[in-house]
Simulated scan of single mutants.
Amino acid sequence: MTEQPSNYRLQPPPKPNDSTAIADLVIEDIKQRKQLGIERYGVALQAHNGRDNLQDAYEEAQDLTLYIKAEMVQRQKQEWIPSNIL
Score class of each variant (00 low, 15 high):
62 Q>S: 02
51 R>M: 04
51 R>H: 08
41 Y>W: 12
13 P>H: 07
59 E>K: 04
72 M>P: 00
78 Q>I: 00
4 Q>L: 00
4 Q>W: 01
60 E>W: 07
71 E>G: 08
42 G>C: 07
76 Q>T: 01
34 K>I: 14
1 M>C: 01
21 A>C: 03
64 L>S: 06
44 A>K: 14
25 L>A: 08
12 P>C: 05
53 N>G: 04
17 N>F: 04
73 V>T: 08
24 D>N: 09
22 I>T: 13
14 P>T: 02
15 K>N: 01
63 D>V: 10
28 E>M: 14
39 E>K: 14
67 Y>G: 05
55 Q>V: 10
21 A>I: 00
79 E>C: 07
11 Q>D: 14
38 I>R: 03
53 N>F: 08
65 T>I: 08
19 S>Y: 13
2 T>R: 02
77 K>V: 06
29 D>I: 01
18 D>P: 02
17 N>T: 06
86 L>T: 12
78 Q>S: 08
19 S>L: 15
35 Q>E: 14
20 T>P: 03
4 Q>S: 00
72 M>L: 14
42 G>N: 08
62 Q>C: 07
13 P>W: 06
44 A>H: 13
30 I>C: 11
7 N>R: 12
24 D>S: 12
14 P>Q: 03
14 P>H: 05
83 S>E: 15
23 A>D: 03
63 D>S: 08
42 G>T: 08
33 R>P: 00
39 E>T: 13
1 M>K: 02
48 H>G: 06
66 L>W: 11
86 L>E: 11
83 S>W: 12
71 E>L: 12
61 A>F: 09
36 L>A: 13
79 E>Y: 08
2 T>I: 01
3 E>S: 00
63 D>W: 09
18 D>F: 10
60 E>K: 07
68 I>C: 06
2 T>K: 02
74 Q>M: 12
73 V>M: 03
7 N>K: 10
69 K>P: 01
72 M>G: 04
15 K>R: 06
44 A>P: 12
68 I>D: 08
17 N>L: 06
54 L>H: 02
48 H>E: 13
75 R>M: 11
58 Y>L: 13
84 N>E: 10
58 Y>M: 11
62 Q>E: 05
45 L>G: 03
5 P>C: 00
84 N>C: 02
30 I>G: 02
77 K>R: 13
63 D>L: 14
34 K>A: 10
59 E>C: 05
28 E>T: 15
9 R>S: 06
2 T>Y: 02
17 N>C: 10
43 V>M: 06
67 Y>T: 11
38 I>L: 05
4 Q>D: 01
68 I>A: 12
10 L>G: 13
67 Y>H: 14
35 Q>T: 10
